[in-house]
């Protein structure tokens, strides 16, 4: 147990939701005066507990709305848990919705540095990996074109290339292994696989038990924010498959 990289300890996340999103003062005051300002408590995660040790690959299974994305956000440090604690070690590379950090008016090259900086890397560090990124994304001729003129596939490729050019300790994958065309997909899966070989710790979210069986050695199932199963990926995938059958 010496090498716990991600330690999720009794984590609960509560969203206080208004029935409708109120983001202007007029509505706020009208609702306040007419006492329609009701808040709903919504627990996206309740008492989730798990540890991932170095080099382990954890699959997170669950139906839509089970709290998978919330869990990833908590691990990525974007969302603070309402209760419980979470400790992570080392560099976390979230591959969540690639290209979110791009500025559309910026050229591809400039965006590489911006995106890198967003992930906390220095200019020098990106300099060293720049050529590799461009080559992997296959966008050599487009690096001086503003990203707004890229196709969505090009954008995703560039995002994937930057995000994986670094050597993170923890890799968070949110169904991103479906970037670009079939050829690039194979290439990106190969890249992720080679990162696996480098003993990277992985948190992988998917609906597909086939993928989880293939990529992960441990898995958990989330259902309505609760962790209902955890163990080796084979066992957990079997449970999940029977759950899916049960609902059909």
């Amino acid at each position: 147990m010496g090498n716990v990289v991600v330690d999720v300890n009794n984590v609960s996340v509560r969203f206080i939701q208004n029935q409708e999103k109120v983001d202007n003062l007029k509505e706020y005051f009208i609702k306040l005066v007419t006492r329609k300002l009701r808040y709903d408590d919504f627990w996206a995660l309740t008492d989730v507990n798990f540890q991932i040790e170095k080099g382990e690959r954890l699959g997170v299974l669950g139906f839509n709305g089970a709290g998978k994305s919330t869990l990833l956000k908590v691990v990525a440090g974007v969302l603070k848990p309402t209760k419980g604690t979470i400790t992570t070690k080392g560099v976390i590379a979230p591959l969540l919705e690639l290209g979110a950090g791009f500025d559309m008016n910026y050229s591809g090259k400039e965006n590489v540095y911006l995106y890198g900086a967003t992930m906390g890397y220095s200019r020098k560090y990106i300099d060293e990996r720049y050529d590799e990124i461009v080559e992997f994304a296959e966008l050599k001729d487009f690096m001086h074109v503003p990203v707004k003129n890229y196709s969505s596939g090009m954008r995703a490729r560039l995002g994937f290339a930057i995000a994986t050019a670094v050597d993170p300790e923890v890799l968070i994958l949110d169904e991103v292994l479906s970037v670009g065309d079939a050829r690039f997909k194979a290439k990106s899966e190969k890249r992720v696989m080679s990162m696996f070989d480098n003993n990277v710790t992985v948190l992988f979210v998917s609906h597909s038990t086939a993928q989880v069986r293939r990529l992960c050695n441990k898995a958990i199932i989330l259902d309505h924010g609760k962790m209902i199963a955890s163990g080796s990926s084979e066992e957990v995938c079997d449970i999940y498959d029977s759950m899916v059958k049960g609902t059909k």
């Binding site: 500025d103 008016n105 910026y106 400039e110 540095y113 911006l114 890198g116 900086a117 967003t118 906390g120 890397y121 220095s122 200019r123």
Partner: peptide, 17 residues
């Protein structure tokens, strides 16, 4: 200190754009 590059990148970006 870790994110100082993000700081300078945003400053640079705003001025450039």
């Amino acid at each position: 200190y870790k994110y100082r590059f993000l700081f300078s990148e945003i400053v640079r970006k705003n001025i450039k754009l």
